[in-house]
Write a protein that binds this DNA or RNA. Structure first.
Lengths: 218, 218
DNA sequence: GGTGTATGTTGACGATGACAACATCTTAGC
DNA sequence: GCTAAGATGTTGTCATCGTCAACATACACC
């Protein structure tokens, strides 16, 4: 955003000038949506609220998104991209052992969920009517998933992980991590469990148990 | 709107007479909400729509629910009760082996999710602001969770399941099943995986892998 | 039988998603 | 350069929703 062309006066705050046709409203609206998610929660994420944050009229978003669901899909896509980046970073930072990488990736996933619970709700809780209508969303989700597949394949090559369909194993791992993340963010963890372990230890314990199931028996 | 007391006459369909003060509107509204969930989906679940189905005015629900969230909580509670019942039934129908019971319980959970995806969304997707305000909800959730704990404890006694905190193990199992259920109902399963295995086989394979991690090493 | 309270109704308000009509900026063709 | 056409943003409007306030009715207890 930011520039001024054309016309005229009305320099807003100075520096923050936008030209009406303010170039990428689309990106601005997505950022506004993310800000609303973290500051006010998912129930406050409304087309009109995003428009207000972007400083445009209540109907401007319709020039960039067919309807509310399209904005949600774009925000979800953004989430999957960050999720994939976090998983990849965690893998890179982890020891070379595929099993360790699996644990760190899972923990990274849960950390993302805990840091952005309402973003996660948009990514997964929403009933996206036609996924085919939002191809970017599918691609971003696939990228995150493929990170797991790669780790598992590497582990199979190294003999650290049982043989079998790597995609199926990755799905199992994804399911576990996803379930843990949602239970934690929804505060649906039995209270005494949470108290006894603490979030990180509880999650890592569950992850190690699952990964333990991936270890070849001698 | 509809009838007539007081004045009188107006027997509706015959048989279906309700006396205005029609006794348990509360239960009727919950049932109406469930019907909306299965027939129209979660986005159609609205206080006013539930009132319409129940044949009362748009404000009648407020005599029984403080706000929309209270109705959602009641519907969620209903879901947890059915979920617990299904898990218990699956356990009862399964072989005596605790590991088999674990798999059947998990599959029952996923079946419930597939049969009532929008009900699941109300149970888990909603951001219940203050769980303490809906004690029945917590109790119903705890009952479902405790079914798993019991199976695991039995397995530990029989030496079929590794020792350790049964509640933590149950949480891991719950997380896995929950994640699988959500991914399936949100249609977020990689297409080729779904095609290669079919839902039931895919789920059972993942469950067995996890349970395999619960088996004591010789 | 009369009265108080629980239950249901009518009416209103502000907010939202969506549509239509209009205004303004940008760009393409000349 | 200038103008016509399209892209982008605005104003106005509508039906629906959640919620509140005021009012009406029916049941239960004395």
């Amino acid at each position: 955003m930011a520039e001024g062309e054309q016309g005229s006066a009305g320099a807003e705050d100075a520096g923050e000038r936008r030209l009406y046709h303010h170039s990428n409203l689309r990106a601005t609206l997505i950022q506004a949506g993310l800000a609303i998610l973290t500051e006010e929660g998912v129930q406050a994420l409304t087309l009109r609220a995003a428009a207000r944050r972007a400083g445009v009229s209540h109907n401007a978003p319709y020039r960039h998104f067919a309807d509310k669901e399209a904005l949600l899909a774009a925000i979800a896509e953004e989430g999957f991209l960050e999720l994939a980046a976090r998983i990849e970073a965690a893998r890179a930072a982890a020891p070379a052992s595929p099993r360790a990488q699996l644990e760190e990736s899972g923990w990274a996933y849960v950390q993302f969920a805990l840091a952005h619970p309402d973003h996660l709700r948009v990514m997964f809780g929403s009933p996206i009517s036609d996924p085919q209508a939002h191809p970017g969303l599918l691609a971003a989700g696939a990228r995150a998933f493929n990170s797991l597949v790669e780790i598992i394949q590497a582990g199979q090559h190294a003999g650290e992980i049982i043989s079998g369909d790597a995609r199926q194993l990755a799905f199992a791992a994804w399911g576990m991590v996803h379930g843990l993340a949602l239970l934690l963010t929804n505060q649906q963890v039995p209270a005494n469990l949470r108290a006894a372990y603490g979030q990180e230890q509880l999650v890592r314990t569950c992850l190690r148990q699952q990964i333990w199931g991936f270890v070849p028996r001698s």
